[in-house]
Amino acid sequence: MASDADEFRHESLEDRHSIAKYLTALAEAFANGNLTFGHNGQAIDLEPRGLLKFDVKATRKRGAVKVSLRLNWQEDEEDRDPSVGSLVISSSGEGEGRRR
């Protein structure tokens, strides 16, 4: 994505049957590796790759229940900044190190 600050937010009221649709949609999107969040014709397209940090939290306090799922990941730096080069160790073995 071009901008550093893409943002999407959804809020709704659901019941335990209707929520399953959302969770299934998310599960399928992760399994496919393609996650799109759209709003008024604008979309954030995410391609989760690499390590995903997954954080599940459930609390119950005097009848108030909260279950939160959080997923974090980093997009490959090459995707964001292709100018970053990589380091290579010459495989010829002809470096500057000591030889027998």
């Binding site: 380091l87 160790i89 073995g93 002809e94 470096g95 500057e96 190190g97 030889r99 027998r100």
Partner: peptide, 19 residues
């Protein structure tokens, strides 16, 4: 400097392992 140190490291390990 880092690149030179890395090359030396690669070559040194290789020569130790081969020998």
């Amino acid at each position: 400097e880092l690149s030179a140190a890395l090359s030396a490291l690669g070559a040194t390990l290789r020569s130790i392992w081969d020998a």
